[in-house]
Design a protein around this nucleic acid. Structure first.
Lengths: 148, 148
DNA sequence: TATTGTTAGTTACAAAATCAACTAATAGGC
DNA sequence: GCCTATTAGTTGATTTTGTAACTAACAATA
């Protein structure tokens, strides 16, 4: 064993934060993904856009871009698909004609509300693994990590 | 506002655990990804296989599959690319000729050691955002979420 | 020793993500 | 007004992933 090997005894892949975060994220996304994929044939990008519009009201692609930290091409394509399913409408801004205002239709809002209820139930189920204090701390720490 | 809307006041996308986990995972992967992508032209699947071989010694694709919770096609392709770069060798098992034993070459081991040091430093940097207790709790909770 | 089932790993094709280049509109000098 | 830079959003080419079907080897049973 070399010197460098010995110095490494404190490193453990199973504890490496980015790895651990990915594992947890992937595992926790799967069950919820089955719902929106199975029931609405949606992709992850699409439910994100749907939720952003449902939660924060009508906005432009760029605003979603910033809030959701998603690349604009992802959003562009998600919007196209959501529009094709008549889940949202686009309206050109009169003052700045580059900008489009996105808004959920009745159907889009119904899909959002239904998925939101499922999301809330699923979140409850996950969070029940921890105490209230732990859960609060977990969310705070994740927010901190996400916002770096 | 409908009844259903009002009932929803306690739901917040920004606190939805799967979403939050994904945001944190993505953010924390980025900086580290730049290293293995920039320096070795590796994909995430490749560094995972590299690390599993580096940490836990020679093993078969199926063993990595189980430990890393990666699909076997991902592993198959990652192994092909790592082999092409002479980072690992494959040896057919004499007793069961379906099985291949994977092992890092000198070059593979060198790459692993170098990346591992960077990973450790990066993990330290991230974890310094929290107290020791918080950090331990965070890892424990993430492990629990990942193992469901 | 056939027959059927299972396992290790690969390959082919379709779906999705990424990256760069693009159009159209606006804004800021000059 | 005219030139250049910037911004909103889209499109196309390439890369990567996901799904299913596949080959080869083994195991169990009759």
């Amino acid at each position: 064993m070399t010197k460098q090997d010995l110095e490494a005894d404190d490193f453990d892949l199973a504890n490496f934060l980015p790895y651990l975060l990915n594992q947890a994220a992937e595992a926790s996304s799967l069950e919820f993904q089955r719902v929106y994929k199975g029931r609405y044939g949606m992709l992850r990008t699409e439910w994100r856009v749907l939720f952003h519009l449902g939660m924060y009201g009508g906005q432009t692609a760029t605003e979603i871009c910033t809030r959701a930290r998603m690349h604009k091409t992802k959003i562009s394509r998600a919007v196209q698909r959501l529009e094709a399913r008549r889940f949202l409408t686009r309206t050109r801004d009169a003052a700045d004609r580059r900008v489009e205002h996105l808004e959920l239709t009745q159907a889009g809002r119904a899909a959002y509300l239904s998925l939101r209820d499922i999301a809330r139930a699923y979140d409850d189920k996950l969070i029940r693994m921890f105490s209230k204090d732990e859960a609060g701390l977990l969310r705070a720490m994740l927010r901190q990590l996400a916002e770096r």
